[in-house]
Amino acid sequence: MDIMFLLDGSGSMNTYEFNEMLNFVTKVVDSFNFTTTRVGVMQFSHWFDERSIYDQPYMQSDIQLGMFASNIQFKVALSAMRHHGYTSFTAHAIHKAIFIDLASSDRFTDLCTKKVIIVVIDGRSLDHSMLLTNANAARALGVTMYAVGVSNYWRQELQVIANGEVGKNDRVFTAPNFDQLHRVAPPLTQHILSLTSSADSA
């Protein structure tokens, strides 16, 4: 399985809240075997229209997909991430995750390798008009989308990211605040793990 976490780095959260989001990621990945599962992490915030997708300082993958084959090494790198601040260009982050991060994997075209994007966001995206197109592009390439909303999330955006339609809550997880975000980790993890178990039984 190849998994990309897209973490909101906007200024609507403080440093403590950002670190709670990192703690959430560590809880989710605890159940994965890093010898068979590749995990990457992108913090996203601002997007510069005048720059190419390869030159976006606030949309870089701090942990590239499969960079670490050890859970411990991954957690050390994750704890070193620093909060950006600024804005939330979620749709652009999804686009980059598909066509650069996940596509860089030598398993991207392997139908037996599950591909997952987990978006964690605490407010409304500035590029929300592009969310449906970009999330659908991910699904068309076999990527399973998850949306995790915290605090000031917009449920309709989460539904579009995870399912491509408003009103459908499959793979949508929410927490009222960052102190409660850890409660989302167990059900999210179990849902992701079920992707591989369902494939094995097919």
Rank of each mutant, 00 (worst) to 15 (best):
D2W: 09
I3V: 15
F5Q: 07
G9T: 14
S10N: 04
T15E: 14
E17V: 11
F18L: 07
F18E: 10
M21W: 01
N23G: 14
V25A: 07
K27F: 03
K27W: 01
N33L: 09
F34W: 11
T35A: 09
T36D: 11
M42C: 12
F44N: 03
H46I: 03
H46Q: 11
W47K: 09
W47P: 00
S52K: 13
D55P: 03
Q56V: 09
P57K: 08
Y58M: 14
I63N: 03
Q64G: 06
L65Y: 10
G66Q: 07
M67G: 00
F68N: 12
F68T: 07
A69V: 10
A69L: 12
H84A: 06
G85L: 01
G85M: 02
F89Y: 15
F89Q: 08
I94L: 13
I100K: 03
A103G: 00
D106T: 14
R107N: 09
F108Q: 07
C112N: 13
C112F: 02
V116T: 12
G123H: 08
S125M: 01
L126G: 11
M130D: 04
M130Y: 03
A135H: 04
A135S: 15
R139H: 01
G142Y: 00
T144I: 13
M145I: 04
A147G: 12
Q156V: 03
Q159F: 04
I161K: 00
I161R: 00
T174G: 02
A175D: 06
N177I: 11
F178S: 05
H182Y: 13
V184E: 04
H191Y: 09
L195N: 05
T196F: 05
S197E: 15
S198K: 13
